[in-house]
Design a protein around this nucleic acid. Structure first.
Length: 568
RNA sequence: GCACCAGUAGCUUAGUUGGAUAGAGUGUUCGGCUACGAACCGGAAGGUCGGGGGUUCGAAUCCCUCCUGGUGCACCA
């Protein structure tokens, strides 16, 4: 597809003798469409050239050779040079690209690059609640987008399956295992046991000691402990997989913390070789004050055992070796900002600079309830299952009301409910905190997932009434020159750029908002233009555009993590 | 106490490396289904961009300071 921005930058570059890339960075898209499709602000040139911006703009405008096939019109307005692109070319380029490519926006720009996305990473034997939703869905979307852009992408679920807590679980099971039937609702039962054993540990030091001993045995490979640990893990995974299944979230690896427990010696050894391992208060630490981090990174506790950070460091070494990653993304809440700063800083002693540069913490905000922070212990959590069931139920209600004869109601309700959850979770910038609110979660109107899906359904509904799909070669571009069609075309044109932006910022919310924009643009088009029943050329052109919107919505929805129903 | 992050309409928010009149949705309110799906579309009201300084042709955006909220700060993960 033609790159309008590049074409414009090229011409300005010639006229000003400023490098094209630099110019391209300055070119902006006017907020008001009346001011053109692209604009070059001349203000920053004013200083160096010592001329008024307006005068500079005039001069550049005179020097530019415009190709009318690409740029329709150039205007100078208050220090800006405004470019109006040729809308026929726009229409032709966009529709041709879609007709040639089954998967619009797909590219090979990531070819040969290896990306790791670590996401979801729940703790074994603990409930999966809405606090885990952001990491799961942000990671899932990034994973899909990187893949779509041709990156060799690996999704890792870094399970929280290690630590003293499992010593406690084992002790709890020893004491009360007969009381619980783990074949039904196992996680809540494990959780219950965990709460009980914690209370007991506080009251009785001897119990705590037994728990520690259990963990030591587990690490040493004791059969009884290992078997139990596997059991906890298995029943937990069954529950987690139910959620992943319904959300259609996939991983290439479930190597969690335990996986790295036998790889930590290498970390310690290497840090020792580098001479950066210091003993302090019995523990072994790496001092990081040289990079401005006041809190040292503990890699070995005073009792000689490893710690979270050590296992993460082992993971970095392992991943560098195994995946040769260009980027390794950690989709983890901002609570752990310091932790990642620390291990990234320590990583320079363990792996090549290339890998250190590739480490990136995709930090996101906390999810709280209107009543305050969630606490599993206090029981005030919204479980993902509850949320999913609630939204699907709501979707069913609305379907029975609006479309009672719909076939496959359940299937559709599921897609719509999940769509609402996905959009709701991914619509705001990663860094922002979110207050979970049932009213918002169950709202299907306005800027929501169901709105995007509904728009898609309308495209399909129109297309289903057409006897024969027109071919691109037969489309008369002239018929798509009204403002609504052009707005749709421009939005579709931006899709590729949007995907790049998402990967530059690791922000799926950019895509989420884009899909709303596209749906809105189509809704306007749909509202203002009759599609079926117009004269053949006009009808064909509009049908073609409608079909194109449908394709992009479907692809975009998939990349965000939601499915488009054909009817709803 | 120190550090990091956030503060934009009643609520949820967008706003590209400083640029044209700060955009949406929701809620409130008014209007639109004998053209393809009204889970839609259009209009109105609603903003001293947390407060105060500063930098400059120009600041929601950069700097300083204060206020509010969140998070973190050595053997939990």
């Amino acid at each position: 597809m033609i790159q309008f921005k590049k074409e414009i930058a090229k011409e300005i570059s010639k006229a000003t003798e400023i490098e094209q890339n630099e110019i391209e960075g300055y070119i902006e898209i006017p907020k008001d469409q009346n001011n053109g499709d692209y604009a070059f602000p001349c203000f920053r040139l004013a200083k160096t050239l010592k001329k008024a911006p307006q005068a500079i703009a005039e001069e550049i405008k005179e020097k530019i050779e415009i190709d009318n096939n690409i740029i329709e019109k150039i205007e100078v307005l208050g220090g800006y040079i405004n470019f109006y692109i040729n809308k026929k070319l726009l229409a032709k380029e966009v529709l041709e690209e879609i007709s040639n490519k089954e998967e619009y926006g797909k590219s090979e720009i990531g070819k040969g690059k290896n990306i790791i996305v670590e996401y979801s990473s729940p703790n074994i034997a603990k409930p999966f609640h809405i606090g885990h939703l952001r990491t799961t869905l942000i990671g899932n979307s990034l994973y899909r987008i990187y893949k779509y852009l041709g990156y060799n992408t690996t999704g890792i679920n870094h399970l929280g399956d290690y630590g003293t807590q499992f010593g406690k679980m084992i002790e709890a099971y020893k004491m009360w295992g007969q009381e619980y039937d783990l074949t039904v609702d196992p996680i809540n039962k494990l959780m219950d046991m965990y709460v009980r054993i914690n209370d007991l540990c506080k009251a009785d030091e001897n119990v705590l000691e037994r728990c520690r001993e259990n963990f030591r045995l587990l690490e040493a490979g004791d059969k009884y402990c290992t078997d139990l640990w596997n059991k906890f893990k298995d029943v937990s995974m069954v529950e987690f997989d139910k959620i992943y299944d319904i959300l259609n979230v996939k991983f290439d690896s479930y190597n969690g913390e335990a996986f790295y427990s036998d790889k930590i010696d290498e970390v310690i050894q290497k840090l020792e070789e580098k001479g950066v391992l210091i003993e302090s208060e019995g523990a072994k630490i790496v001092d990081l004050t040289d990079v401005g981090i006041k809190t040292p990174c503990i890699v070995q506790k005073a009792n000689g055992s490893s710690i979270y950070a050590t296992r993460d460091l082992a993971a970095i070494m392992y991943r560098a070796k195994t995946y040769d990653f260009d980027k390794c993304l950690y989709v983890v809440a901002y609570e752990q900002n310091l932790h990642f700063k620390q291990i990234f800083a320590v990583a320079r002693y363990l792996v090549d600079e290339k890998y250190v540069k590739g480490l990136e913490h995709v930090s996101y905000g906390m999810v709280a309830l209107p009543t305050g922070k969630m606490s599993t212990r206090l029981g005030n959590v919204v479980k993902i299952e509850e949320l999913i069931n609630g939204t699907i139920e709501k979707a069913e209600e609305i379907i029975s009301e609006k479309n009672p004869d719909l076939e496959e109601k359940e299937e559709v309700a599921k897609k719509v409910g999940i769509g609402a959850i996905v959009y709701n979770t991914l619509s705001t910038a990663n860094i922002k905190d979110q207050i979970f609110d049932w009213n918002t979660a169950l709202n299907f109107q306005g800027e929501t997932g169901p709105y995007i899906q509904y728009t898609y359904v309308r495209t399909q509904s129109v297309l289903s009434k057409v006897e024969e799909m027109p071919k691109f070669e037969d489309i008369n571009i002239e018929k798509l020159q009204d403002e609504y069609s052009i707005n749709v075309l421009k939005t579709i044109y931006n899709f590729e750029d949007i995907l790049t932006q998402v990967t530059n910022k690791e922000e799926p919310s950019i895509l989420a908002r884009y899909l709303i924009d596209l749906a809105k643009a189509f809704s306007n088009f749909y509202n203002e233009n009759k599609i079926i029943g117009e004269e053949k050329e006009l009808q064909d052109a509009r049908i073609y555009l409608t079909s194109s919107v449908g394709k992009v919505l479907k692809i975009g929805g998939y990349l965000l993590g939601m499915e488009m129903p054909n009817k709803m």
